[in-house]
């Protein structure tokens, strides 16, 4: 199939960027979206052009490295699918596809489609952990965890930190990301002792990074390749209210 890609090209963080059109005459429906970019890059390299920079690694939808906005949708049109798992059969011959980096003031463009998502790491550093030094853990069966709680924790722990929620949010908010971590750890008995400090520190870090505020538009959960639900945001709010009221 023959496709036209219009890709955001930006040489560096401080450089101006623009959309540039490229023809890809030899696309194949069984290619992944990233393989399409590979094919384009091989050609650009041989033609002496600068290949398109994009983040990627595992290419099986779990590392969270890849992610671009395709035709206005984070990770493209297929639900619950990362960019690396999106295949060209979702598109038709002759399509014009717009490819842009994640947009948020907290995610500066590094080059082309590559952005700086270190803000998400700093949110985790602020409180997204349970403080247990190696070797100090009690026997695993000492604290049973009811299955529904373990399942909720797991569902939220599947977040891959790709940043699609931020990219999709019209407010550039990181609420879904932060709420997944708060819900994961605060719902477990192991996470209870640090419950209050955790949510306060995470919210504080999120605000400090310049992420926007949540207006409950729900765009995040639609874009999320792991389907983290809006309920997690309610849980974060609940934990935050509880922590703020309880601290005084």
């Amino acid at each position: 199939m023959k496709l036209t890609l219009r890709i955001w090209r930006q040489a560096g963080p401080a450089e101006p960027g623009r959309m540039v059109a490229y023809e890809v005459p030899d696309a194949n429906p069984d290619m992944s979206f990233l393989e399409l970019l590979d094919v384009l890059n091989e050609r650009l390299t041989l033609e002496g052009d600068d290949p398109v920079t994009f983040d990627h690694d595992c290419r099986e939808g779990i590392c969270g490295a890849c992610g671009v906005v395709i035709n206005g949708q984070a990770h493209g049109p297929r639900e619950r699918t990362t960019t690396c798992q999106l295949h060209m059969r979702e598109f038709s011959d002759g399509d014009v596809i717009d490819v842009e980096p994640w947009r948020s003031v907290a995610f500066g463009v590094v080059k082309d489609l590559m952005v700086d998502r270190s803000g998400l790491d700093r949110i985790i550093r602020a409180g997204g952990y349970i403080s247990v030094n190696t070797g100090s853990a009690p026997e695993a069966h000492a604290t049973p965890v009811p299955k529904p709680i373990a399942d909720t924790a797991f569902d939220n722990a599947t977040c891959i930190g790709c940043g699609a929620c931020v990219a999709a949010c019209p407010n550039g908010a990181a609420m879904l990301f932060a709420s997944a971590k708060v819900t994961h750890l605060n719902s477990l008995p192991q996470g209870a002792p640090e419950r209050t400090e955790r949510v306060l520190n995470i919210v504080e870090a999120m605000d400090a990074e310049g992420f926007g505020g949540c207006t409950n538009t729900g765009e995040c959960t639609v874009a999320c390749p792991k389907g983290i639900p809006m309920d997690s945001i309610a849980t974060l709010n609940r934990e935050y209210l509880r922590a703020s009221l309880g601290r005084k």
């Binding site: 070797g135 069966h141 299955k147 373990a150 399942d151 924790a153 750890l185 192991q190």
Partner: peptide
């Protein structure tokens, strides 16, 4: 065996049975 203890304490959500045990 120590690894499992350590990971559970960190909040790793291993699969559990209805008893709440791993």
């Amino acid at each position: 065996t120590q690894i499992i203890d350590q990971c559970v304490a960190q909040g790793v959500p291993f699969a559990r049975e209805y008893s709440g045990l791993l």
